[in-house]
Design a binder for these strands. Structure first.
Lengths: 138, 138
DNA sequence: ATTTGCCCTAGAGTATTGTCTAGGGTTTAT
DNA sequence: ATAAACCCTAGACAATACTCTAGGGCAAAT
């Protein structure tokens, strides 16, 4: 089973432009071409693209994704490096998850104020405090 | 208690450039100036900057953060809009958390292969499959 | 008083990640 | 056989978010 660039774009919710851009950046060296020069994607290609999307979704820079792909293309002797790279990314994801949990707490705290029946009064009072604080500065 | 731009930058792990950039983008309309034109940050300013950082860390665009700040500056009559804006952001954070969990699974799956004692064989075998797949295409 | 370090603005420059256009060939359906 | 819908490349353009430079003022220490 093979796929056209359009089909792949749809599958991964990317634009055709983006896929071509990724190819230009060296992220898709494994994609073959047909006689007409069209890209021909196989199922194993899709599986690698899935990994690329996974790394991209965790905010890995294209340069670093390219490093990973380069390791993959280089064969089994780069397993150690791949493991290191993914372990580093794993830690980044864990840190990001923790941070998002913090952020969520902060947002929920704000929302709880906004949703309180006393929201208007609370905020009006807080504004008055700020006003005094600022006027003292002058 | 007041703070200089340098102190605020250190507190939030931002560059002075970034703080000035945020100001230029309308994110810090609440920050007063002293006689010399220097920015003077108060504690309540810091608390708002914390919120800005929180929104930034959850990938809100500066344009949208500005919208939120504009609502805050406009006073209590914008509580509904603020709540809507933060609720939307909250949902984005929840979605991102779910996605990160998926991403983590994918990374862990890969890592488990790389860490397996049979990693070299597994990958060598997989490469052979791909090689055959690709050679069939020609 | 002068050096050092901090502050300011305006605006140029940079990095990243796309997104699109022009110009041209291919494939499919009518 | 021709129109419609694909595909290709090179390279221009754009959005976002900084980051830095130039030129100049202010503040604290020597």
């Amino acid at each position: 089973m093979t796929y056209t660039i359009k089909e792949v774009a749809q599958k991964f919710d990317l634009s055709i432009y983006t896929l071509r851009f990724y190819d230009k950046q060296g992220l898709l060296p494994f994609v073959q071409r047909n006689e007409a020069g069209y890209r021909v994607f196989t199922d194993t290609d899709l599986s690698l693209i899935k990994t690329i999307c996974c790394l991209k979704d965790t905010d890995m820079k294209i340069r670093d994704i390219r490093q990973y792909i380069d390791y993959v293309m280089a064969g089994p002797c780069t397993i150690k490096q791949r493991e290191q790279l993914l372990t580093k990314q794993r830690n980044k994801v864990l840190a990001k998850q923790q941070q998002l949990t913090e952020n969520l707490k902060e947002i929920d705290y704000k929302l709880q104020i906004y949703r309180s029946p006393k929201a208007k009064e609370l905020i009006t009072a807080a504004r008055q405090v700020v006003k005094n604080e600022k006027s003292l500065m002058k």
